[in-house]
Design a protein around this nucleic acid. Structure first.
Lengths: 216, 216
DNA sequence: CTTGCCAAACCTACACCGTAGAACTTACCG
DNA sequence: CGGTAAGTTCTACGGTGTAGGTTTGGCAAG
């Protein structure tokens, strides 16, 4: 481990630290992540990191911020005004980020998201829904509903398998006959098709609720 | 800390350990939880715990198992056959457990649930849905959809506030005008009314999808 | 050119953590 | 009475986050 003399610059900054941290969590997982290991990766003394980020909690914040930024830039390509299309695009971007960083994702799902990038995405969606004439209460509930589902679903899908698609826990057929009978229909566990199917059902719930309440 | 002589029984068993662990996490949070602190609470040497539970990971498993068991016993009171009623009852029981143990809940949402108590609840729901004539694919998707939503939603609601209801993060009005305009409609953040409203919307999605696909 | 200051990096040290391994005491069974 | 298994404690090791102090180089003012 090549240590440099005190006082000489190591070129550290918040961005470089966050990028290395994301890579480290991707490789070794959240459990094994720590300040010392990150420092070793950066070829730097552990305490150097604390001059840019004030503690481990802030380090985890920086990690979630970094991966969230990825999905934002990916969703900026197209700018549709149809709210369902916005929702689907955002959801797909979010899902792809989750699959790119499966071991980072629990961090995102656990922490409240109040960063500008998250709020901007929500604002866009909510504005489009309102412009489409959806009832205000339905629009107001949408963020919690959609991202609640996305976080929970992705958490389940990512922690369930080895990363390889298509492996369910393999349930006991005699104890749970109905579940077993449906097993073949759950074959594509974690696939895009499954995601589209279920996310569409959630969107359908919003549509349905809007119809039931009238168009504002 | 009253230590007993070696060899004398401390009356430890998996159940008592799990109960104490749940209480400790409820009080101090997951971050501060550890084998040594739990041992102190039980007035026992840390290593004694390892004769009943093989490691910290297994300890966390025992914790989630214990809180999951609470919701099961609560849902056994009524036995309706209407699938929507089953879903609502289960969801409410699950929600109440989450509010009883807000600092334990992230453990449940993060770990894949393959325990018998979880599978039994799913089997009941899925059987009722099938009996009602819902299309198999919709039924097969329901567990992932419903518990995905429940986990994500509850995670968001529980980590968002101080535990007191009604406090949203307080967003910037000029940067996010639409969000700000809807703020008053998000007043009951974390309330039962909000939960019922959103969960109903999700159920509506399933109903809608079933109609669209025909009744099997 | 000198001086002083400060940001960035390092070093040391502390309290705490999970847990492997061995020693000890007791209860029970033959 | 001897043996064995279970439950508890003791000791120790390598790891962690981080508080506090020290060193160094670069830059701006005089």
């Amino acid at each position: 481990m090549a240590r440099r003399a005190q006082g000489t610059s190591a070129g550290l900054d918040r961005e470089r630290i966050a990028a290395a941290a994301v890579a480290l969590v991707d490789r070794d997982g959240l459990e094994r992540f720590g300040v010392r290991r990150l420092a070793e990766e950066l070829e730097v003394d552990p305490m150097s990191i604390y001059h840019h980020i004030k503690g481990k909690a802030a380090l985890l914040d920086a990690i979630s911020e970094a991966v969230l930024a990825e999905v934002a830039t990916a969703a900026d390509d197209a700018q549709p005004h149809d709210w369902e299309e916005i929702a689907r695009l955002t959801a797909h971007g979010y899902r792809e980020m989750a699959y790119r960083h499966p071991r980072v994702f629990p961090l995102l799902a656990t922490r409240a998201q109040t960063s500008p990038v998250a709020l901007t995405a929500l604002e866009r969606l909510v504005t489009a829904m309102r412009a489409a004439g959806l009832p205000d209460q339905v629009v107001a509930d949408a963020p919690l509903m959609l991202f609640g589902f996305l976080n929970g679903y992705l958490l389940a899908v990512l922690s369930g398998g080895s990363g390889q698609a298509g492996d369910m826990p393999a349930i006991n057929a005699t104890a749970y006959p109905t579940m077993a009978a449906l097993a073949s229909l759950q074959a594509g566990f974690g696939s895009v098709e499954e995601f589209d199917r279920i996310f569409d059902t959630v969107l359908g719930g919003i549509r349905d609720q809007a119809d039931r309440r009238g168009t504002r």
